Amino acid sequence: MSLSLNQKTINRASLAEAVEVCARHGIEAIGVWREPLNDSGVERGAKLVRDAGLRVSSLCRGGFLTGDDTEAALADNRRAIDEAVALGTDTLVLVVGGLPPRSRDLAGARQRVATRIAELAPYAGEAGVRLALEPMHPIYCADRGVLSTLDQALDLAETFPEDRVAVVVDTFHVWWDPRVLPAIARAGARIAAYQVCDWITPLPPDALLARGLPGDGHIDFRTLGAAVTEAGYRGDTEVEIFHADVWAAPFDDVVAEVVRRFAST
């Protein structure tokens, strides 16, 4: 697997800056986020990536399908599919959404995800883009992702053709699951993206920023990476870090360390 830099790892960077730093450090792929892409303009952003000779490993992120406004959610995700096409990637990562405000109906939220994925899958299929469901650690179930395990994501994905709905294996979110290895084997060709970062302790006050550089925490990357490879995945390994100290550091320092860690893990 080749290295891809997820843009969030250098969160303060514009798309142009992220593309430039990837090129300087010999990284051939980038995981693009929609907000900086739209800041630059989708057509200009796509041209920046192409002109640098980079490929886009994924577009982050669509999803947030559990709210009350169905049409707004569907329209935003159709725009995200169009943006993925413009970037030349077939992978749109979906963070499916948490509980709606003032709701405790977890089963209902999960059903909303399934219903809205069914609405989006034909549009994605016609565009040649896979909706990649990202299961998230249970600490994010209330506010970000009501799919908490890879098996849950696969239960939903498998109701659709594999060229339309797939899954993300993100080490931060799945490493703890006692069924993660058989779930990865089950996923097989439905693995659309492999994202890596480490689980560090103690957790910071904002648990969203607990994602460390590989090697700084508790995750067994060799075992998980081998399982993903054995399942047949041949795409990029996308390093995606959410950590205040990493975000505050100079971009070149961070990316140089990412390259070094990737070579040694």
Rank of each mutant, 00 (worst) to 15 (best):
E20R: 14
D143N: 15
L208Y: 12
I184M: 01
L37T: 11
R116S: 02
T70L: 07
G98A: 08
V180Q: 02
E71V: 13
P205R: 06
A249C: 05
D105H: 09
S264N: 13
V32G: 00
L213W: 05
K8M: 15
V113G: 02
H218S: 10
W176I: 11
E158C: 06
R104N: 12
Y140W: 15
E230C: 08
R179G: 12
L65A: 08
L147F: 06
C60H: 09
D39Y: 13
D163T: 12
S58V: 15
L99P: 03
D76T: 11
T159R: 15
V258C: 00
F262H: 09
F262P: 00
V167L: 02
A18F: 06
T9N: 04
E17S: 11
T9K: 00
D163H: 13
Q111A: 15
G26H: 06
G145Y: 04
G63W: 06
E119M: 12
H218V: 12
V255L: 03
G62L: 03
V254P: 01
A107C: 07
T115L: 11
T171H: 03
A127T: 10
G88W: 03
T159E: 07
G215S: 09
E257V: 07
R12G: 09
E17K: 12
P178V: 14
D245E: 14
F64H: 14
P202L: 08
I219S: 01
A166K: 02
G45T: 10
A124P: 04
P204D: 08
W199C: 06
A109V: 10
G212R: 01
T229L: 08
C197N: 07
S4Q: 07
A244K: 08
D245G: 10
G215E: 07
P182S: 12
R144F: 08
A226N: 14
H137N: 10
G97F: 05
R179E: 15
P182L: 11
P178Y: 13
L133W: 03
A227S: 07
L203C: 04
V113Q: 01
